[in-house]
Design a binder for these strands. Structure first.
Lengths: 166, 166
DNA sequence: AAAGATTGATATCTCAATCTTT
DNA sequence: AAAGATTGAGATATCAATCTTT
């Protein structure tokens, strides 16, 4: 390893490793939870969260990709698979024939409705229970600060902002 | 959604979403960094970190899987691919003919040596620069607390502890 | 039979084309 | 040509067998 690189301090190294490990464990636990409860993967769940957040239950492909921080091609493949399972469907966009919506189906709503309570319980149990209000606050503001600093530094493509179809 | 589930508070929900987003962005940035610098993926890098941490540069398959929080089968496939690229090699275990070591090759050491400085710089830039010492401390102890609480709750298989071959 | 590890089939992700509409 | 989206090929991940040694 090159000798002129400022290395992480022992404490930082520890924090960094702990962060990586914590993430892996949280993801694994939530994955199992969703799988057992509703036969959904985490990506499935994320997609459904954003679709059901919309009043009309449908979001333009590019917008959804931006919300998810995914590449459009990944989303397209994923939608194809979820469509095959009846969880979502593609809907043509009247105002722009190039575009398309992804829309939740009743089955999709049912699936996330079935999954959400257990998922929320798991997030609570894994992340928030046992932390003091002070800790949650400090944790949150630190995460926010980190996030704010990199908002325009990373992430695949900062696409347009067309909330509606046009 | 069922009505008797204690939902996340607005603040917790915010923290949780921020956490997910931050992770996605950090991972994406580090991925690009490693890819550009040394043609390594994050999983490649993680494997090499644990191998080069060992004095002999080799670790038993099951132990490595535990360190990585991976399933053995994933590791086996990954080792096959890394072996094909000359980064690691499989070594028979003399004391237990069932077992095997994964060992770094000189090319593997060279690759991680080439990747490490940029990677460390990126971690510093993304996560630690701009945080006060207090914030880093608070962040670290919170992450530690979370991690400690779930140590035996999650993760694929808490395997044996054979550090050496036997 | 249990432990250590690998294999094969399938699902998913990534990257570079491709296709259509603007 | 640029924007919106999809496709196909190759890489990686997951899950359930399988194989060998203890």
């Amino acid at each position: 390893m090159a000798s002129d690189t400022p290395w992480l301090t022992a404490h930082e190294e520890h924090v960094w490793r702990a962060w990586l490990t914590l993430n892996a464990r949280v993801n694994a636990a939530l994955h199992r939870e969703l799988q057992d409860d509703a036969d959904l993967s985490m990506p499935d769940f994320e997609v459904l969260v954003h679709l059901t957040d919309d009043p009309d239950g449908r979001v333009r492909v590019t917008d959804l990709a931006r919300l998810l921080l995914w590449e459009r091609s990944r989303l397209s493949h994923h939608v194809t698979r979820m469509e095959r399972r009846g969880l979502v469907e593609r809907v043509e966009c009247p105002e722009d024939a190039r575009g398309a919506f992804v829309a939740v189906t009743p089955a999709g709503r049912s699936a996330i409705g079935h999954a959400a309570p257990g998922h929320v319980r798991a997030v609570r149990r894994l992340v928030f229970d046992g932390l003091t209000g002070e800790e949650v606050d400090g944790f949150g503001s630190t995460v926010d600060k980190l996030l704010a600093r990199m908002t325009d530094t990373a992430g695949p493509a900062g696409a347009s902002d067309a909330g509606t179809c046009a």
